[in-house]
């Protein structure tokens, strides 16, 4: 038996799940030629994996969608410890020997903690015109600078523009903070954990993740719906989930 020194296939790992997991029906792997999704078991836990060719980079939109949709379909049935996109090991044996076996207790404890819990993400983005009108009404200096610029030569106005833009940016940041606080307070009673995410866009109003018990999902959706109504016309509001608890899993400290 000979083993080549050059590997052409690796084992992509999606996440860690309880050993009695069943695959979702339409499971599809990442990669240009998606490998079959497999369950690699070790005792009470298992890893969701598929083979990937190593000669091509990963990360096409399809790859990203498949990674998340496999984990989110799985979390509908059992708890899931999601791995960050892009984890590839040399072989199925390595998945057992280096991932599952040595860290089994830690993973099992994490899975128990996540039992019956799912994540939601709320994304709200200010409607530009609406939020700018609010700012001009609330910040007299911004309204004044806007008038000032109108009569100025464009080149000369650059510094004033920057000052105006900074005022607007600060005002939007303050609104983001206030709106985030309001939503956090409202969601606190129906959620277990909350994570304030970095804004991913300059017009972001709220960007939050919540860990919710399954029996409170309807409550969470109701609160989110109330905010979508309250902010109608000024914030485009979206609720994403339920999904795996990506935001609430912290890797162990790299102890060496």
């Amino acid at each position: 038996m000979s083993v080549g020194t050059e590997r052409s296939l690796g084992v992509y790992v999606y996440g860690v799940v309880p050993g009695d997991v069943e695959l979702p029906e339409d499971a599809s792997g990442v990669g240009a030629k998606p490998g079959e999704v497999e369950i690699v078991r070790h005792g009470e836990i298992a890893a969701l994996t598929s083979e990937v060719p190593l000669d091509r980079p990963l990360g096409t939109p399809d790859d990203l969608y498949r990674h998340q949709s496999l984990l989110d379909a799985t979390v509908a049935e059992v708890p899931v410890l999601p791995l960050r996109f892009g984890a590839v090991l040399t072989s199925t044996e390595a998945v057992v020997d280096e991932l599952l076996a040595p860290h089994g207790e830690e993973f099992l404890a994490g899975l128990k903690e996540l039992e019956g819990r799912v994540q939601y993400v709320v994304k709200g983005r200010y409607v530009e015109q609406a939020v700018l009108r609010e700012v001009l009404e609330e910040v007299p200096e911004a309204a004044r600078l806007r008038e000032e610029i109108r009569d100025m030569d464009e080149d000369l106005a650059r510094d004033v523009r920057i000052r105006l833009g900074e005022l607007v940016g600060n005002a939007i940041a303050a609104k983001r903070e206030a709106d985030t606080r309001a939503l956090l307070e409202a969601v606190a009673p129906v959620s277990l954990l909350r994570n304030v995410r970095e804004p991913s866009h300059e017009l972001d109003a709220v960007h939050l993740a919540f860990l919710v018990a399954r029996d409170r999902q309807a409550d969470l959706e109701q609160v989110a719906g109330e905010f979508a109504d309250r902010w109608a016309g000024r914030v485009e509001f979206r609720l994403l989930g339920p999904m795996a608890a990506y935001d609430f899993i912290v890797s162990r400290k790299d102890g060496g």
Partner: peptide, 25 residues
Amino acid sequence: IDTILDKGLVIDAYVRVSLIGIEIL
């Protein structure tokens, strides 16, 4: 992108020897 590229368990924290650093777009 916001969710799976930034969040979740980092494999490097658990596996060293058999980790393959595949190129990620």
